[in-house]
Design a protein around this nucleic acid. Structure first.
Lengths: 133, 133
DNA sequence: TTAATTGCAAACCCTTTGCTTCATC
DNA sequence: GATGAAGCAAAGGGTTTGCAATTAA
């Protein structure tokens, strides 16, 4: 039988932080925010909850290039833009490519469950700074 | 002035391994292969060369989900399929979406340099195994 | 009551780095 | 020769985990 999961104060705070930011934060950033509400929450608890929420599909784990993961409180499929200068991750407001998964399934004979599309470049904020250099 | 790079026996072997596999290997796998030819090559050397080759654009570093990187000896833009069961990474033989980067540039006002598209699912090998379970 | 979750700290694992020696240019 | 690169081993840094104590259900 499947293990049941319980709603804890810690998990509630973590979900709340994630659902109320657009920043695609790292585990550590979430930990710092959570400590403002539960000062002795532990980093291990943050990681355990993030993993559980990722596995249940309630949040998304992003790992684009960097050595650490970012998390996205919005599990609805969408694309991302990663700024190679400041590291920020932006949502890209663009319709999800529907047909493309079927195309791959037919071409390769694999079962495709989802896809991820990320753009890399320099965001508008950083373009201004780069000009100055 | 820019630092010059030298061609060493170690680097030659690493490039050769990468150009002659379709497996998108990990650093460790490359290390094991290289040791067959240079038994006392060090893992640090493998990592240093992989980083140098990545930075010069001669190879590609892939980091899809797992906690470790894979490397691709083919720097020409193409897409990948990641099997969630066995972890293998396959090339997807599909034309690269040309117009999509411009679309994002216009929509967001960012400068887009490249994009990455990965598909996730179960490869044909693993589909057979999953049925048995 | 009972078993999932927490805090704490140590362990993990992949990757990087400092330093001396080696070898390419 | 000069200096970029190798080998070795230790350090780094993000993430996971073992264990006793809590706490949700």
């Amino acid at each position: 039988m499947a293990a049941t999961t319980r709603m804890t104060r810690q998990k509630k705070v973590i979900i709340d932080i994630l659902k109320n930011t657009k920043n695609h934060p790292t585990a550590d950033w979430i930990y710092e925010q959570a400590r403002r509400i539960i000062p002795d929450i532990s980093l291990g608890t943050v990681y355990r909850n993030l993993r559980q929420l990722t596995q249940s599909g309630e949040i998304l784990e992003l790992n684009y290039g960097s050595s650490y993961s970012r998390f996205d409180g919005n599990p609805v499929p969408h694309y991302h833009f990663v700024c190679e200068n400041c590291g920020r991750v932006y949502d890209v407001d663009m319709p999800v490519l529907e047909k493309i998964e079927k195309e791959v399934e037919e071409k390769m004979g694999f079962s495709v469950k989802n896809h991820r599309l990320e753009f890399y470049g320099v965001c508008s904020d950083c373009q201004q700074k780069v000009r100055v250099d």
